[in-house]
């Protein structure tokens, strides 16, 4: 009888000790899951910045973050458009300003900058990664489309020129936005809409150019071309300096819907 009286205590100790390890593992897994959920939900807060990066084919996260010892390299574009791009780099000056004004930035700021620069969400890291992929990807896409649209040497040169022009225009638009933000303006919905309008206008203009280049019988085929595949991710480089401002801007999913009312 005595041993029977001790039995429930033995079972309880067994339950507690036996369940300890699985409970700990479960706790850790739950914590990891919560972290992942938080990250996912923060990604779902679709900012206007995300919309921009998505349009220019920049991944949401870099797979490989840059080496912390390496300084962010200046953008070098394969197409040679960068050189022709506007050089009124107010945004770049704004980025450089703290470094020149105070030769040694506060350690905390430097650390934060280092963390930001080496995080997969950092625009610099994402652009670097997208650029590597883009060069190969655009070559394949270009070859496919040249073949599909049956373009001769002259038309091919025009095709390349219109793509380059599009990238140059997009970079100029990005630079304009970066300059505006660097001068202290807020990323308002109006500014966002105007910016997207400029970007999409450039894309539409490229479609118009292509319609002229391709033979009449293949115009329908040309309209199938996904023009965003040809956007050089480097066009978004001017935005690196103002990334923080864009990230804090409200996104399309968070906007309120107003009834338009009778017109």
């Amino acid at each position: 009888m005595k041993s029977f009286l001790l039995l429930p205590f033995a079972v309880l100790i067994g339950i507690l000790i036996g369940g300890w390890a699985p409970r700990e593992e479960l706790r850790m897994l739950r914590r990891e899951m919560d972290d992942l959920k938080t990250k996912t939900s923060s990604r779902e807060k679709d900012s206007r910045f995300d919309a921009i990066t998505r349009m220019v084919q920049i991944p949401e996260r870099a797979t490989h973050v840059p080496d912390p010892d390496r300084k962010p390299a200046a953008a070098v574009r394969d197409t040679g458009v960068t050189a022709a791009a506007p050089t009124t780099h107010v945004a770049q000056a704004a980025t450089d300003a703290p470094a020149t004004a105070t030769n040694t930035p506060p350690p905390q700021d430097a650390e934060n900058e280092e963390i930001r620069r080496t995080s997969p969400e950092d625009l610099q890291a994402r652009i670097e990664e997208a650029k590597e992929l883009w060069a190969t990807r655009v070559q394949i896409a270009r070859s496919q489309w040249l073949n599909r649209l049956k373009l001769d040497a002259e038309a091919t040169a025009l095709f390349d020129a219109s793509i380059d022009a599009m990238n140059a225009e997009l970079q100029a638009t990005m630079q304009g936005l970066a300059d505006t933000l660097a001068l202290g303006e807020e990323m308002t919905p109006e500014l966002g809409v105007r910016f997207f309008n400029e970007m999409t206008t450039s894309l539409v203009r490229t479609y118009d150019d292509l319609a002229v280049i391709v033979p009449d019988e293949l115009r329908g085929e040309a309209s199938q071309l996904e023009i965003t595949d040809f956007i050089d991710p480097a066009v978004a480089e001017p935005l690196i300096a103002v990334q923080h401002k864009l990230e804090n801007a409200p996104g399309s999913s968070g906007r309120r819907r107003y009834s338009r009312g009778p017109r």
Partner: peptide, 16 residues
């Protein structure tokens, strides 16, 4: 269920 029944007996036997 097993844990709750065990807990019940443990409480009872502590009083006992």
């Amino acid at each position: 269920s097993a844990t709750l029944v065990t807990l019940g007996f443990c409480y009872l036997f502590t009083g006992y």
